[in-house]
Design a protein around this nucleic acid. Structure first.
Lengths: 214, 214
DNA sequence: TGTTTAGATGAAGGAACCTTCAGCTTTGGA
DNA sequence: TCCAAAGCTGAAGGTTCCTTCATCTAAACA
């Protein structure tokens, strides 16, 4: 059973004039900013509205409740990452498996690291009952797309592309998370990225029948 | 700056009689149960007390506030996992690197899978401002201990043990998380565990100067 | 058995905060 | 220019829930 009915989570009003589009955008941006600065526990709708430079009433014209607001913020973030992954999956179709791995790592890591604070703050939303479903769906979608990419690899796969995608994405998630909760993610980025390449390459090699000369 | 002063988070009263020890235990267990059944959002101190079969007042004699209660629950869980890791680190000192990897995977996965619902429910606590510090500390501690283990490997390491430990633990975390948020973790356990072994073995091989005959 | 200390109770205070709505302002087109 | 629709406002209602404390019961001990 879902936490709230679907009806309750739909936007209350769809922006038609230009200014309201700006408003909705400002609210979503403000939500992230508040999330980053005070955390999910102390985030209030009034605070978000203030930060966005509008009144609470305005916020509630576009988001039926607090949960919907947070979910929308999370979706927006996830969408950004998904777009990066999708681009890679289109661009590297039929390439070699190792090339795909490298490209995925770059895309995923740089999308997450683009705004470290934001990515880190959203973990608290994605771990909640409401956010969990969104995170899971995004994960499943990413896995599916990457599995399809792997299926086109120039070398033949010795394993189910689904499971290969699962492992690669799990490793990506694990390392990203570790990176995001570091004191200084920027400092650790280079070495961890390098090592992640080694980890994934090593694994992908075991998924190929005939080893290429690398 | 921490969310709450250290003073505020210390237990209010330390159990001296046997019955109060039982009470504290019941409260902590109840907290987990409530967390599992209604989620962090809807967990209330009254609900936890009811579930534990005591009154709210009693709860507040041992936990200064709700946050402290959740933190204590998280610590308890983390401690269980840490103990498993520690045991491995003592037992496999000076063994071969690959053996260490296999043992770590088994210990970590089985500790997390011991109670799937509990592990999954606690993610919401560990992503919060309060829980984050605990989770980070536990992660750092685990990494340190595992790095020390790796440093004793019978084969020589070509890399800093710290970074090797970091990568292995990140992979473990990533896969565990994926497992815990699956619809049916039990069903996926075997294949994912198997594949995790492949992933980690492949990586550890790159950390050894001379490859052993496996 | 009497006294002291530990443990337990739960109604009630009170703060925090989500959400509404009646009314006001701005925009865009007729 | 004028009006209907879109957009905005923010004080106040209402809930939820954390936390306290005066009071009661059980245990330890002399």
């Amino acid at each position: 059973m879902p936490t709230t009915s679907l009806r309750t989570l739909q936007p209350r009003k769809t922006p038609v004039q230009e200014r309201s589009v700006v408003t909705v955008d400002a609210i979503l941006q403000a939500a992230i900013q508040v999330l980053v600065s005070v955390g999910k526990e102390r985030l209030t709708t009034t605070l978000v509205a203030m930060r966005a430079g509008v009144s609470v009433g305005t916020l509630y014209q576009y988001f039926p409740n607090k949960s919907a607001l947070l979910q929308a913020s999370l979706k927006r973030h996830m969408h950004g990452v998904a777009t990066s992954i999708d681009r890679v999956c289109k661009e590297y179709r039929s390439a070699s498996l190792l090339t795909m791995g490298d490209a995925l790592i770059d895309a995923y890591i740089s999308a997450k690291m683009h705004n470290v604070k934001e990515s880190a703050a959203l973990y608290s939303v994605s771990s909640d009952l409401d956010g969990l479903a969104i995170a899971k769906a995004a994960g499943a979608r990413g896995r599916r797309v990457v599995a399809e990419l792997f299926a086109t690899a120039s070398e033949g796969l010795t394993k189910d592309p689904e499971i290969v995608a699962t492992m690669v994405m799990a490793a990506l998630n694990g390392v990203s998370r570790r990176l995001l909760e570091a004191k200084s993610p920027e400092r650790e980025l280079a070495p961890l990225r390098e090592e992640l390449l080694v980890l994934v390459r090593g694994y992908l090699l075991t998924c190929i029948a005939t080893k290429p000369a690398t």
